[in-house]
Design a protein around this nucleic acid. Structure first.
Lengths: 214, 214
DNA sequence: GTTTTAATTATACGATTGTTTAAATCTCTG
DNA sequence: CAGAGATTTAAACAATCGTATAATTAAAAC
């Protein structure tokens, strides 16, 4: 019999992935097979439970992302970094996340609902990561203006998050035509798409001015 | 004094965009300045209110998307369609949506929480639209395998949705460095990024096999 | 002006929520 | 074995939720 604390976390993780963050503590404790009050005993509140739930998954993923990026930078101590390698370092760990598919959906749901949990999530987990990858992407695309770099990182996150949050129903709504079970092929599709997006020509200030009044 | 029904819709729209779909009817009716029971009188339930709220915004957007796509196809009755024009037809209407910024955030939140509202949303609103744009993208990228075509449409939606749902806080978390107030420039960035992604080389079956065991 | 319908109001209902309390049980130390 | 601390349990708390009811007011029709 596993630990009560982790059983609560597992049950909450699965239920939140399926039904959203407003699942009741009673549903969570029922699925975990523990008493209702156990949540407020081991964690302090429902919000603290969600924080612990998120931290448990994000922390190892971000650690792995940094490790992979470290290896890439070690192989290229100077000069431009290979763009595909940087993208891989960013998207592989969450997409290859071990365990149930629920975790991927939870991850996507987390990014899809900015405002509620994100301020508690961004400062400790995402902010240092974003700063780290920003300089890496800048080294991979030296000629890209800073604003475009940030936007294209943002777009890449959008591709990754949307793929994760729709991973369960994407095959359903396409009639099984599109399937996300082959993780490696999916990662390769994401990297090719976003890398080409990073390498796209940027709009110079003059044509921007023109497009605005077209 | 505007209509009670639209005042409820406006208030619900704004509050849901800010705080999610689990806002109370009391908060909605308080902001609208109407009585609590007015919601169950004019609509039948809270779910029906959300359905009406979504339909009110999605219907004209999708109508405009189809109109713009019709014009593109009329200008190119045969042969390949210009890829950028097809992407513009898809992403411009929601991003240029008139009215408050709340609507864009609501739109993004809707896509970010698949499963709850999406089955009620997909069949009537999204399914015919996806079928229509699928053939258009196929005409724009004739050499692209069907599976890759679907995935890259999916990625494009991810870029669009993520940009919309993060439009309010993106400038906040980047310290004002990245700003989404210039809609036309933002659209241009999205189109350049995704068009380059559509044109990226696809992975052939052989190298797929190899990558899977790499 | 009276009647009929539509719309709004105040109020209450049952159900569910997160959280707390106090007693019961278990676990381990001395 | 005794007892101190940790954990689990059942029960209840106040608050909030969506919804329904009945009465009241406004509007429209004849």
């Amino acid at each position: 019999m596993t630990d009560t604390k982790t059983r609560i976390l597992d049950a909450a993780e699965s239920l939140i992935a399926q039904h959203g963050f407003d699942v009741s503590l009673r549903a969570i404790t029922a699925k975990a097979g523990v008493n209702l009050a156990a949540v407020n005993y081991h964690f302090q509140s429902k919000d603290a439970l969600i924080d612990a739930l998120v931290a448990r998954r994000i922390a190892p993923i971000n650690r792995l992302r940094i490790e992979v990026l470290d290896a890439v930078e070690r192989e290229h101590p100077e000069g431009p970094l290979p763009l595909e390698a940087v993208i891989h370092a960013f998207v592989d760990p969450p997409l290859r996340m071990p365990g149930r598919e629920d975790i991927r959906i939870l991850f996507g749901r987390l990014y899809g609902t900015p405002g509620e949990f994100l301020h508690r999530l961004f400062e400790p987990h995402l902010k240092p990561l974003a700063a780290r990858f920003r300089v890496a992407f800048a080294r991979a695309c030296p000629e890209l203006p800073p604003a475009d770099l940030m936007w294209r990182m943002h777009f890449t996150i959008g591709v990754m998050v949307h793929t994760m949050s729709w991973s369960r129903i994407i095959s359903e709504i396409t009639g099984g035509e599109v399937n996300s079970s082959d993780t490696e092929a999916l990662i390769e599709r994401i990297v090719r798409f976003t890398a080409a997006g990073f390498r796209a020509a940027v709009q110079d200030a003059q044509s921007q001015q023109g497009a605005r009044h077209a």
